[in-house]
Design a protein around this nucleic acid. Structure first.
Lengths: 150, 150
DNA sequence: ATTTGTGCAAATCGTTTGCATCTGA
DNA sequence: TCAGATGCAAACGATTTGCACAAAT
C-alpha cells in the first residue's frame, strides 16, 4: 500500500501515504494537513483534542494555528478519517479509529481509552420513535481511579 | 397553567412536597429553588438545559438569573436530585430521572429522550484497566429524522 | 491564474465566578 | 442574627468566523 518515497520534509516516510489518504478523501494535501495527518495517524489509535494536537504540532515544529487545527479536524471528520467522541460536556475528542467501538472515559484524568471490540455488547436495541432512524450507538464506560492504589 | 408563584398561604400540595424534597436533600428551600424544583419535577421526567429552564422560569414569572439556574442545577445534581446527561459536546442536559437508564438523542433537534428501561441491555462489561473501577455505563442511541417523512 | 486553505484576532457560545446585597432559619 | 443564597456583570475556556494573505493545482 504505502511506499516510502523520496520526501523532502524530514525523516518520516509516512508522509506520502498520508498524501494518498488525503487525496482519497478529496482533501488537498497541503503542508499543514499532511503534517497533522501524520501526527494523527502515525502512532496507532489516538484520542486527541484540538489543543493537544496543536501542542504536538508545535513540538514537532509544524507551524499551524489553533484555528487551522480545529478546521482540519472537522474536515477530517467530514471526510470519514476521524470520528468525534462525546464523553464530556466541555471538550471534544477526535478518534483516529473510525470502526464501530466504544470507550472508557477516566473522568479524573480526562482520558479516553478504546474498549476492545468484543468486550461490550449492546443487545435488544430499542425501537426508535416514529420517523427516526438510528445513526449510531455510543457506549461510554466511565471510570475512576480506585482510591488508595496506584 | 397553574400559578405556583403567588404568595398566598393556602395549601400548595406540589409546593410543600418540593420543600420536603429540598430539605431532605439538605438544601434550603429558598424561593428560587422551590420554583425551579417545581418546574423541574412537576411534569414527569424531563431533560433540560440551563437555558431552557431559565426561559421557563421567565415565562412563569419567576425572577431568577441564569447564573442562579446554573448554580441550582449543579446543587440539585450534587444532592442526587438530578443527573447530568452527556450527549453533545456543546450543551449540558440535566435529567430529572436519576434511575439507571439510557437515552436517545435526536441530533437534528437537540432533543434527549429516555429509552425505556428494558429495551437496551449492555452485557459483557469490559474489565477496567488496573486501578480503575466503573462508575457508570452510559448508552446513547443517536437518531436522525428519516428524510422525506414527517 | 484561479481556487482553496491558512493565520490571526476578534467574536461567539455556554458556563463559572467575584462580590455586594438580600433572605430564610 | 448571620450563614448561606442570589443577582449581576465581568471573567472564562473552548470553539468559530471574517478577512487579508499564501499556497496548491
Amino acid at each position: 500500500m504505502d511506499h516510502a518515497e523520496t520526501n523532502d520534509h524530514g525523516p518520516e516516510g509516512a508522509k506520502s501515504s498520508v498524501r494518498n489518504l488525503l487525496k482519497g478523501a478529496g482533501l488537498r494535501p497541503t503542508r499543514q494537513r499532511v503534517a497533522l495527518a501524520s501526527l494523527l495517524f502515525a502512532r496507532g489509535n489516538r484520542h486527541i483534542s484540538a489543543e493537544i494536537l496543536h501542542e504536538e504540532a508545535m513540538i514537532h515544529r509544524v507551524p499551524v494555528s489553533l484555528a487551522t487545527v480545529y478546521n482540519t479536524l472537522h474536515q477530517f471528520t467530514g471526510a470519514g478519517l476521524l470520528r468525534e467522541v462525546v464523553v464530556d460536556g466541555s471538550k471534544t475528542y477526535f478518534d483516529t479509529n473510525t470502526d464501530d467501538h466504544h470507550h472508557f472515559y477516566v473522568e479524573d484524568d480526562n482520558v479516553v481509552i478504546d474498549i476492545p471490540p468484543d468486550s461490550v455488547t449492546v443487545d435488544a436495541l430499542p425501537t426508535p420513535p416514529p420517523g427516526m432512524e438510528i445513526t449510531r450507538v455510543d457506549v461510554v464506560v466511565r471510570l475512576r481511579r480506585i482510591p488508595g492504589r496506584n
